[in-house]
Simulated scan of single mutants.
Amino acid sequence: MSGDAERAARAALTRIAEPGDQMMGRWLERYGPQEVMRALSAGDHPLDGVTRQRWDGLRRRARGARPEADLEGLAQLGGRFLCPGDHEWPGQLDDLGAARPIGLWVRGAPSLRFWALRSVAVVGARACTDYGLHVAAGLGAGLADRGWTVVSGAAYGVDGAAHRGALTVGGATIGVLACGVDVAYPAGHRELIGRLAGQGLLIAELPPRDHPTRSRFVLRNRVIAALTRGTVVVEAELRSGSLSTARRARELGRMVMGVPGPVTSGMSAGVHQLLRMEGELVTEPAEVVELVGAVGELAPERRGPVLPRDVLPPDTVRVLEAMPAHCAVDVGRLADTAGTPPEQALVRLHELRSLGFVERRGEHWRLTPGVTAGHRHSIG
């Protein structure tokens, strides 16, 4: 577990460096957070690999860092700050290497490490269709009901629907923000973000009161990808931030999945491209679990309805299919059509009569009224 001095240094650095800053990550690996902060405070000798202009910019930010105030303010909201090496730190984030978060600001009672062990990201378009909302909510509810944590970005559209689906069934869900965990962004999701803090978890790399930028949304996506066992994309245009999450998931060796949509919908064009190139097609929670879960967590096989014809022996089916639809036929003609000896055809006809498929009229046989082609033939 990190000491107080290291925790304060990492908290300060989250206000100084942008998320995913690999140069900062390399400095932390080489020097440690306290030494990096000392260098930024002294400022005379820039650390290796940085221009003077950038070093001066980092120093200006360092002068405004107040880590003790940030830590205390979040604690008053019931939050906490996690560092790599803490018991609650999700080890899978270490797969990001030098781009690993400096630390994570967290709101919510559950253990982030525990919840992230069985987690799936559900991401997609903000301006999604009703179809996308329906699918995302169903996936969120179904995955949560199966004991999986649903991870998303708390944005409009697919993200919000996935979170709400999980919350509806009392399941686990984590919102990964591109702003401080005390900031309600987007503003229209203030109520949802409050529910995530109260019933689930909110996490962010950025310190309290920080607001999002376009680049921070993209950088946030790498945390969603690394935190989870797999990413499901529900509706995404060809140029979509959700696809960046899928790409990072693939690079990290995580499962990448997509839900198909109408081929005429531009909102699904990015998902279809993903499926053509690298993703696994999924349509329901059980299929997602089969791909990311343990051995034996298989989705039930999907089959069409079982028709009466499906339970008949092949020889009997052949005779039934030889029956004309609208007239009676004698055994000899029927045997010729079915390609079977007359005595065998007669045996099969008696079987079919006992099952209600055919009826006898003297020396002729016909289909029982009401037995249609749909009863005679399997849909395959």
Rank of each mutant, 00 (worst) to 15 (best):
R276S: 14
I379V: 11
L13D: 04
R353C: 09
L274D: 03
V347M: 13
P208S: 01
G49A: 05
L275P: 08
V122F: 04
V331G: 00
A62G: 10
L117Y: 11
R303W: 13
T368V: 11
E321F: 12
V183A: 09
V234I: 07
V317E: 15
A127G: 07
P110H: 01
A9E: 06
E88K: 07
L291F: 06
A12L: 12
E29V: 01
G380N: 06
V311F: 14
D315P: 15
P342M: 03
A75V: 02
F217K: 08
P369W: 00
H211N: 13
D210C: 15
W89S: 01
R353M: 10
E235T: 01
C83E: 04
P46C: 03
L312C: 10
L219K: 14
G304Q: 05
T213W: 11
R309H: 14
Q22V: 09
V181C: 14
D70T: 01
V319A: 14
A246K: 02
P341H: 02
A335Q: 00
Y156A: 12
R118K: 10
F114K: 13
V347L: 14
I174W: 09
V331A: 04
A39P: 15
E251L: 11
A154P: 13
V256C: 07
A127I: 04
A137Q: 06
L167N: 05
E363Q: 01
E287I: 00
A5K: 05
M1F: 09
A166D: 03
R360W: 11
V256S: 07
V295K: 10
A42M: 13
H134R: 15
Q76V: 11
P341E: 03
T213P: 12
E68D: 12
P262W: 03
P110S: 01
G200V: 02
S41V: 13
